Amino acid sequence: MATAEGYLRRLTRRLTEDPEKLDVEELSDEAAATGAQRAIDCRRGQEVVMVGTLRSVECNGKGCAGGVRAELFDGTDAVTLVWLGQRRIPGIESGRTLRVRGRIGKLDSGAKAIYNPLYEIQK
């Protein structure tokens, strides 16, 4: 009986809550389940392992000579991934889920970044 009540409660929540909020919570829970650090908790200079979804991927600079930039979102915060000297990276595209490893730095804008991260494509 309790299982049916729990299912009904979850179903009602899914039908009534904002879909974007549910997606953020689901993404955050998935990242936490892998043992990865949450982006919101990461600080400059820290070596991290993160899991998240790429929200955008673009070339940076003239003819992409400046590298590839991608925004990784884990449900708590976004981190910009920067691959210097790359024009294109196969498999790095919006909507993909990645596990990345690297040291947190900062962009000129003050946003968190990881330069030349090691990565594994999850989905």
Results as ranks from 00 to 15, higher is better:
Thr12Trp: 03
Lys123Met: 01
Arg101Ile: 06
Leu84Arg: 14
Glu120Thr: 15
Asp41His: 09
Ser56Pro: 00
Ser56Val: 02
Ala36Arg: 08
Gly102Pro: 06
Glu20Arg: 11
Gly35Ala: 04
Ser28Arg: 15
Ile104Phe: 03
Gln46Ala: 06
Thr34Trp: 01
Tyr119Asn: 12
Val79Lys: 09
Ala32Glu: 10
Thr76Cys: 05
Gly67Trp: 03
Lys62Asn: 04
Glu20Ser: 02
Glu26Met: 14
Ala70Met: 05
Leu22Trp: 10
Tyr119Asp: 09
Thr16Leu: 12
Ile104Thr: 05
Ala2Gln: 13
Glu71Ala: 13
Asp23Gln: 13
Ile121Met: 01
Arg9Met: 07
Pro90Ser: 14
Ile40Trp: 03
Gly52Asn: 06
Ala31Ser: 12
Arg44Asn: 09
Leu81Ala: 11
Leu22Glu: 10
Ala111Asp: 12
Ala39Arg: 01
Arg44Lys: 14
Ala65Asn: 07
Ala32Gln: 06
Ala70Phe: 06
Tyr115Thr: 10
Arg55Lys: 08
Ser94Gly: 08
Gly105Cys: 03
Arg55Glu: 01
Glu93Arg: 13
Thr76Met: 06
Asn60Trp: 07
Ala36Asp: 07
Glu30Ala: 09
Asp18Leu: 02
Ala65Gly: 04
Val100Glu: 06
Gly52Thr: 12
Ser56Gly: 00
Glu20His: 00
Ala78Pro: 03
Leu84Gly: 01
Gly95Ile: 05
Arg99Cys: 06
Ala39Tyr: 01
Gly95Ala: 06
Lys21Asp: 12
Ala4His: 10
Ala36Cys: 10
Gln86Pro: 02
Ala65Ser: 13
Val82Met: 11
Glu20Asp: 05
Cys59Lys: 11
Arg10His: 07
Arg69Gly: 02
Ala2Gly: 05
Leu84Tyr: 07
Val48Gln: 02
